[in-house]
Every structure is written in structure tokens, then in C-alpha cells.
């Protein structure tokens, strides 16, 4: 890697916000907070519009598939392609009725072992545990990065590069190796989630730990604060907003990690296990239902972190 390459990764020292922000995002600097009218009406309009074009698109897509099947001599139990479009067993896009039936059958008893809500909760738990682990590792690494320049110079380029490695491709192998070490069940999924999430957290925390300006540092010095005191009282609180921003970025990635880990290891529950099962059992409608639950879980995780952030920043004396 060229000099420009390695010099570029320096975490936020000097110029406030370093280049590394590229791999994560800065805390949202919302410009001009103006009280705006509620988004409810426009959102509703967009939803209605989507629902309106959904029907013809679904009919068009399924009709084509049905026509092909009929042409190849399949007996679908219906005569014309249009009639078959809403009752294909493996629809391109499920008809609302089909989706609703699938939704009900997978959610009717929300806490049975085969129900989607239960499995979503399992996956959510794994992801949260993984995020927790990522925060611990990220804080440790960030502290090292901030405190030791040789550590930073030796590892930072590779920490950045590690983000371009398709970690999910490694997940099955990681799971096997963890299995050898006797780590099974809930934990391998959380560890893989943590592995995917640690980087944004590390970089975010490093930026955060460096964010206090020299003026604040000087103040701490005039108070004769020790190194650890400065760390605890100034740097750590200052890094909190950065932590939450990076956690939001990490949450979706970690969720992908735990789902992939469920697919690729021995799993008795989780959305990934449902995904693997249903994709092999030819249940297209179930895949759609699981996608909706996966989306909801991703949104819920980010919302949860947002709530936590609000609680913590409210508690913080300075915004």
C-alpha cells in the first residue's frame, strides 16, 4: 500500500474527522432543525400508490410464469395464465391473498418453534449479544489505536481492508472452527455477528475518543486530571454519540452475520434456519413472509439503538 494509502487511514487526529469516516458515518449533523409538518400524509400516499401498482405488476409477472408452465405442459389446476396468476404454487410475486395466508400460518402461534415471530426474536437476541461483544472489542481496539501509534500504523490498514473481505463467505468455516473449540448453539452466531460489527464500532469509537478538542484537554490538565481520569471523564463520554452512530451502521451488518451463521451452522431456531428450510422446501410465500420479518427486525434493531441513544444523550449533561 502506498504512503498515501496508509497515511490516509489515520484516525481523525489533527483534522478532526479523519478519512476513515468513509467506512462508517459521522454522527448525523442535521442541518437546520426546522419544525416540519408531519410526514404521515405523504407516506400514506406513497403507500397507497405502491399498493395500486403492486396488483398489476404481480399479475403481469405471475402471468408470464404461468404461461411458461402451461406451455411446457404443466397441470396447474387452472386453464388460462391470467386465472393461474393469483394461485401459482410458486409465484414470482405472491398475490395478497397468498401472502396473507402464509403470514397467518407462520404467525398464528407466535411463540411456537416454527413460527416466524419466535425465530425473529432468537435472531434478534443473537444479534444484540453480538453487538454487545462488538462494543467491548471495539472499545478495547479503539483505545489501543488512540494510545499507540505503532499499533495504529501496523493494524489500521488491515482493519480497513478486513471490511472488504466477504466475511459472510468465511462464516461457515468460522462456525466449523468454533465448533471444534466446543463453541456451539447460540454463541457462534453472536460471535460472527460481533466479528462483522466490531469494525465500524472500533473506528467510530476511535474518532470519538479523539473528538475532544485541545481546549478541553488543557482544561483537564489544569484540573490535574490523571490519564485514566481524562479518559473516563472526557474522552469516553465524548465518544458516546459516535458509538451510537456506528452501532446503527453495524446493526444491519451484524443481523446479516447472524442470519448467515444460522444458515451455515447447526441451528434449531432463528430466521436463517427458517430461510434455509423454506428455500429448500420450495415455499416461496414463506420466503416472502420471512423477508418481511427480517426487514422488521432490522428496522426494530436500529430503532432500539436510537431509543438507547436518546436515553443516554438526555442523561448526558452537554449535548
Amino acid at each position: 500500500m502506498s504512503e498515501g494509502g496508509s497515511g490516509k487511514w489515520v484516525v481523525g487526529s489533527g483534522n478532526g474527522q479523519g478519512r476513515v469516516q468513509g467506512m462508517t458515518t459521522l454522527p448525523a449533523s442535521t442541518p437546520r432543525r426546522v419544525r416540519r409538518p408531519s410526514n404521515l400524509l405523504p407516506m400514506l400516499a406513497v403507500a397507497v400508490f405502491a399498493a395500486l401498482i403492486y396488483w398489476p405488476v404481480m399479475l403481469f409477472a405471475n402471468q408470464g410464469a404461468a404461461q411458461k408452465a402451461l406451455d411446457s405442459g404443466a397441470d396447474l389446476g387452472c386453464k388460462t395464465a391470467l386465472a393461474c396468476a393469483t394461485q401459482l404454487r410458486n409465484p414470482v410475486i405472491p398475490a395478497p391473498g397468498q401472502f396473507w395466508v402464509g403470514m397467518r400460518s407462520l404467525s398464528a402461534q407466535p411463540f411456537s418453534a416454527t413460527a416466524a415471530p419466535y425465530n425473529a426474536l432468537v435472531t434478534g437476541g443473537e444479534t444484540l449479544l453480538g453487538l454487545g461483544l462488538a462494543v467491548v472489542v471495539g472499545l478495547a481496539l479503539a483505545t489501543l489505536l488512540v494510545r499507540s501509534r505503532s499499533f495504529e500504523r501496523a493494524t489500521l490498514p488491515w482493519l480497513v481492508a478486513s471490511q472488504t473481505v466477504p466475511v459472510v463467505a468465511l462464516a461457515p468455516m468460522l462456525a466449523v472452527l468454533l465448533g471444534q473449540a466446543g463453541v456451539q448453539g447460540f454463541l457462534p452466531k453472536a460471535l460472527i455477528a460481533a466479528y462483522i460489527a466490531f469494525f465500524p464500532v472500533t473506528i467510530g469509537m476511535a474518532q470519538g475518543l479523539r473528538s475532544p478538542d485541545p481546549l478541553q484537554r488543557d482544561l483537564m490538565q489544569t484540573y490535574r486530571a490523571s490519564g485514566p481520569q481524562t479518559f473516563l471523564l472526557l474522552q469516553l463520554p465524548a465518544s458516546l454519540p459516535y458509538l451510537f452512530t456506528s452501532l446503527k451502521v453495524a446493526a444491519t451488518a451484524a443481523l446479516v452475520g447472524s442470519i448467515v451463521a444460522e444458515i451455515s451452522t447447526i441451528s434449531f431456531s432463528g430466521l436463517g434456519k427458517m430461510l434455509a428450510e423454506n428455500s429448500r422446501a420450495s415455499d416461496t410465500v414463506a420466503l416472502w413472509v420471512i423477508m418481511v420479518y427480517g426487514a422488521a427486525l432490522g428496522i426494530a434493531l436500529v430503532a432500539l439503538i436510537g431509543l438507547l441513544e436518546r436515553a443516554v444523550t438526555r442523561w448526558r449533561p452537554v449535548a
Binding site: P172, V176, G179, I263, I266, A276
Partner: peptide
């Protein structure tokens, strides 16, 4: 009785996961 994931049963047995 363990259900399969994406990996081969060989790998789970060779590594002692099963």
C-alpha cells in the same frame, strides 16, 4: 440428531462439532 446447515456433515464431524 443434528439437522444440517450449509456446511458438509464431514466438516462438523472432522472438527468434533458432531
Amino acid at each position: 440428531l443434528l439437522p444440517i446447515g450449509d456446511q458438509s456433515p464431514i466438516q462438523t464431524v472432522a472438527t468434533g462439532a458432531a
